[in-house]
Structures are given as structure tokens and as C-alpha cells.
């Protein structure tokens, strides 16, 4: 299997940026961050540079290397299923921006139409 080269490498050869302003806006939307135009101007260039740097992980040939997600070889760690003290509704709701009837009160979750 061929090594998957990051798009950055290919784009760099073509003199293109790794991450365009539009892409940053799109990804920010996916991450639920409403960036202003000023922020987009500022962050897009920096992110392009950072993506260019991190893409260099592709320079190491690692086709047959297993991925490592975690330092410890742990599997299915569970604790004893026993009743233990937990938060009261008052404690759980104490920091809520809004609460109503012992519940978190949130803005509408459906579209208006």
C-alpha cells in the first residue's frame, strides 16, 4: 500500500496553502465556534502554518507500524458496581446558566419553521 501523503505536501508542491480561509470557517462551524471575520483573518494564516508543520508526520514511513492511542495497555477497566454518594439535583444545577423544574433549561433545539 502506498504511503498516504498529507495533502499539504502535494499542495506545497503546487504552491498552495494547506488550509484555506473557507476551510477554517467550515471546520470552525463543525466545532461550533462562530468566528468573526477578524478572527478568521488572524487564525487562518496561523493554522495554515501549523497544519504545514504537523503534516510532516507523513515523512516517516510507518505503513506496518500499529497506531498507539494510549500509553497503557488497558482493556475494559470497570469498578465495582456499588451505590456511592453523588450530586444532589441542587448541586448539579447550581452552575447552570438557567434551570427550571429541577432541570437544565436550554434554548430551543429545533428549527423554527
Amino acid at each position: 500500500m502506498a504511503v498516504l501523503r498529507p495533502v499539504w505536501t502535494a499542495n506545497r508542491l503546487r504552491g498552495m496553502s494547506a488550509l484555506s480561509r473557507d476551510e477554517v470557517a467550515h471546520v470552525a462551524m463543525l466545532a461550533r465556534i462562530q468566528l468573526s471575520d477578524d478572527e478568521l483573518d488572524r487564525l487562518a494564516g496561523q493554522l495554515d502554518q501549523i497544519v504545514g508543520f504537523v503534516a510532516t508526520v507523513g515523512e516517516i514511513a510507518a505503513d506496518d507500524i500499529p497506531p498507539m492511542s494510549h500509553p497503557l495497555p488497558l482493556e475494559n477497566v470497570t469498578r465495582t458496581d456499588e451505590v456511592r454518594p453523588s450530586l444532589t439535583p441542587q448541586q448539579a444545577l447550581a452552575a447552570a446558566p438557567r434551570a427550571e423544574a429541577d432541570r437544565f433549561a436550554v434554548p430551543r433545539i429545533l428549527d423554527e419553521e
Partner: peptide, 20 residues
């Protein structure tokens, strides 16, 4: 971005291999 479809293998996946 690194976790999004189409980029995962080249970025996060490759980084995990470097970690190994």
C-alpha cells in the same frame, strides 16, 4: 480538522504511528 473524514489517516492516524 485532523479528525475529519479524508484527513484522519494522514494526520491523526499517522501521528499515532509516530507515537508507537
Amino acid at each position: 480538522y485532523a479528525l475529519s473524514a479524508g484527513y484522519y489517516d494522514a494526520y491523526y492516524g499517522q501521528a499515532q504511528k509516530v507515537r508507537t
